[in-house]
Design a protein around this nucleic acid. Sequence first.
RNA 1: GUUCUGGUGCAUACUUGU
Length: 417
Amino acid sequence: CNSLLAGLVRMDWVDMARDIYHEIVDMGVSPNIYTLNIMVNAFCKDRRFDKVDSFLLEMAEKGIFPDVVTYNTLIDARCRAGHLEEAVQLLNSMDDKGLKPDVATYNAVLNGFCKNGQHGKAKELLGEMLDVGLVPNVSTFNILLGGFCKIGDTSETMRIYDKIANSGLIPDIVSFSCMIDLFAKKGDMNQALAYFRDMKGVGLVPDNVIYTMLIGGFCRIGLISEALKMRDEMVDHGCLPDVVTYNTILNGMCKERRLSDSDQLFYEMVERGISPDFCTFTTLIYGYCKDGQVEKALRLFDKMLKSNLKPDIVTYNSLIDGCCKEGNMEKVNELWDDMCRRGMFPNHITYSILIDNHCSKGQVEEAFRFWDEMVENGILPNVVTYNSIIKGYCRSGDASKAEKFLGKMVNDCVVPD
RNA sequence: GUUCUGGUGCAUACUUGU
């Protein structure tokens, strides 16, 4: 029964898991600590922390109490929700309950700190972990590797990588992926490929993730041909490109303005049975808009909606920018309304697009209408919006107003660039 | 049988005479 429940939760079928749980209990089967943990995890996945509390009370009446795994689940969920303080509180409260935090507990919090940019605290916590006599595992180091890799801190990432071996542990595929990602993102493909060779040298088999990182690295430096070679290599090794791999190449092609290539690849992926996701569409829509092919972008947008994929603010901003530049203000208004109807609201980029568009046409008054609306909505003007207004004044031959505005900009503590 | 780590659009999306 527990395996079934766990399977459902893993598939994100939380509602069904809960229904089945109730049926099982009604049938007179008594839940145990595993059941409790599976259900707590289910509630956490849905961010239903309130439900967790009542559920724990219910279980306590049956004599089943939270254990370390329960706490780990709760702590991880808090971290994912960005509630680091609560997570740390839970960690600290474990002692009172007679529970001893384990490596997974610390890993969860470490991960929380790293994902929230609190790398210093992560390092402190690693120290605390060692102080209480816990032995970090490869995941512990991988969490830190990923954290420092994401902020591009090469020297710290390499120090942590060395620590893995110094601790008597063996770097695994995730450790290598962090190193490869670090260098691929920096555009240092020689280093990335060196780690790629190293991992194969120690008998690890590169997977989709590794290949996609390398492909993305080549794309980033404009070497689409190398990216495609890497794609061929992965296929030769029996590793099939997935939707992320395709999205990565598509993005590379779009950035290089190779829209006919991306178009072809898009059809290829569909032919091979890989369903485009909302990233695929947003990537292509962005690419076509930037290339001035707004019609094509709008057709893709329709297709996206028909596929039941939800556009996000980036999708809308790309289209709004494209339509603005084309002068199709009717469509802009339509998209704007459509976006709001879907519960997404213009952000500082959306406003910048419209402010700049009106300024480019010398319609400073109109631009200020959006400026005011933006400020009313609690979004502060930034360098981009100030630059646009100054440009607008210059366009309409109002150099003195432009200069006055530059003064206001400095007054508002926005540094001119 | 339950909890912790890696890849894609987007924070490098909007301004920059062209």
